[in-house]
Design a protein around this nucleic acid. Sequence first.
DNA 1: CGCCGGATTGATCAGTTTCAAGGCATGTGG
DNA 2: CCACATGCCTTGAAACTGATCAATCCGGCG
Lengths: 221, 221
Amino acid sequence: MKNSHSYQINEKVYEQGEAATYIYQVVSGAIRVFSKLNNGYRQIGSFFFPGDIFGLEPGARRRWSAEAVVEATTVRLTKRKVVVQKAQSNLSLARGLWNLTARDLLHADHHRVMLGLVTAEERMAAFILEMNSRIGVDGEIDLPMKGTDIGNYVGLREETVARVISKLADKGVLRGNGSSRWGRRLNLRRHERLRAMLPPSSLLELPPLSEKLIQTIFSKP
Amino acid sequence: MKNSHSYQINEKVYEQGEAATYIYQVVSGAIRVFSKLNNGYRQIGSFFFPGDIFGLEPGARRRWSAEAVVEATTVRLTKRKVVVQKAQSNLSLARGLWNLTARDLLHADHHRVMLGLVTAEERMAAFILEMNSRIGVDGEIDLPMKGTDIGNYVGLREETVARVISKLADKGVLRGNGSSRWGRRLNLRRHERLRAMLPPSSLLELPPLSEKLIQTIFSKP
DNA sequence: CGCCGGATTGATCAGTTTCAAGGCATGTGG
DNA sequence: CCACATGCCTTGAAACTGATCAATCCGGCG
């Protein structure tokens, strides 16, 4: 396998339980990482967008599965074992990886607080603000994932997702693209109204990744 | 402050937003770590029991609050800054701290999958199994926290917690202490029945902490 | 013995899921 | 260029689960 790869929409990148062979960085497209629950439910743990690194595991096994959200999602990859071993003797790399794990923790903590939120509206507000800070440009959010995925991330059914978005649109908090339907594009009109629905602790702001670290991880030896 | 401290029941150890001054290890009693939500709700993120280390943060601020669950909860403590700084030049310590962060991540991931579970019974099953693996001895679980805390951890109201436990007792999966009431002591009769309610991925087994790491962290310089 | 914190149980209520039916946009083939 | 199929979003109505509100119980303790 070369040091980059492209996936079709919904194609599997890796699966829960497998050996964790690679660390990935999204180049284009988007990735969803999820865990299978009972009854065909799945809990999505994260979405990853260009620039994000994913697939570094604390242990040697995949604890989640990963799939491409959109057609032609491409990633860079590098052997996990090599990187981890290099960190055994490279303090700065070790601290870099520690930092990556810490980011994952920050996100996981943020996510579980979100899942603890009581109402559907609160959870959607948290989701929208998270996506805005990750892939929003100037209040325009182009969501690559479908409603079902959003539901699997925030713990709601896709119908509820649609209903909440409609309601928020009615309230003037945001708008879809033109008509009342959102069509995967949101136009945030009033941040504050969403913020106001949430406890202060439920916002997440991550510092940018160190470019140097990325190079250390993905450079050819 | 000495290098150990004892707290009264419900006494605050630290609070969300504060500077993170210490790293702690529970000596006796139990700690709950939580985040305030709206409407007086709180999301409990973890319970810590004797031997557990808590309070190492990825950043310099407390992202959660911590309180003593029971009277006379005692902890060891050490200056976070000193330890983190030592890790700047000590590879093995750095890897140890990385490992601690990784544990937190493992737990957080486990917890958010639990919060994504659909029914009250599933969530309680996951909780009971988690507590069994943490503080259960031979199927006997002495829970130090009250029903409200359990609810705040699994995302249910205290009444629902009681109802589910009653139902599980009726089903013969577990028993309270003598009468139909559980009184904070559970006797697990049929593990498998609880397991069977859950997706395979939702079990968490952590390796024991390295004794050497603990000493490095808490030893007097 | 009476008080108190917490657990339990019962009876509604409310919000989300579920089931079902369209709607809209896109793409494909004739 | 239109007819139709597909995938997803949207909306409606009914069913259900857990939340709420309220009362009671239980064990421990002053």
